[in-house]
């Protein structure tokens, strides 16, 4: 293969990429965006963040009932320790503990066949 022929081939190849560089840039950008979006969706689902997202379809009926006000009184992590400060802490703690235990979450058996109206095997 003589030198002018090689030069011509190289120029032809360079010409193709130069000619389509914008198309390449657009496709490259789309592919990178698809990969990054897929990765973020996987993380969103695997981490459990999706379970806390009530803006998803099917949860609109309850999304406005989310308790957005964290009215818990915070307790400073620095300061002296004496009977007064411990009593202050226990007062806040007891109030919060009462609030927590006021609702027996996930109690009951709503998935019981009898509740779901298809009875039990004994019926």
């Amino acid at each position: 293969m003589d030198e002018p022929q090689v030069v011509a081939e190289v120029q032809e190849k360079l010409g193709f990429w130069t000619e389509h560089r914008y198309l390449l840039l657009i496709f490259g950008t789309i592919i990178i965006a698809v990969i990054l979006t897929s990765v973020s969706l996987i993380i969103y689902n695997v981490s459990g963040a999706a379970l806390l997202d009530l803006s998803r379809p099917g949860y609109q009926s309850v999304s406005d009932k989310v308790d957005r006000t964290s009215d818990i009184d915070s307790y400073s992590s620095s300061g002296p320790i004496n009977k007064t400060t411990v009593d202050q802490f226990t007062k806040i703690y007891d109030a919060q503990a009462t609030k927590v235990k006021a609702v027996d979450a996930f109690n009951g058996d709503p998935l019981n066949p009898e509740v779901l109206e298809f009875g039990t095997s004994s019926q």
Partner: peptide, 30 residues
């Protein structure tokens, strides 16, 4: 049930999380 349990998870989880970070951890640090 799916929707109401999701709401319960969000609200209860928030309170239980706050008990740990805003009260227990802070008192331990003090």
């Amino acid at each position: 049930l799916h929707a109401s349990d999701a709401l319960l998870r969000v609200n209860r989880g928030q309170i239980y999380e706050a008990m740990g970070t805003q009260l227990m951890d802070r008192f331990n640090s003090r």
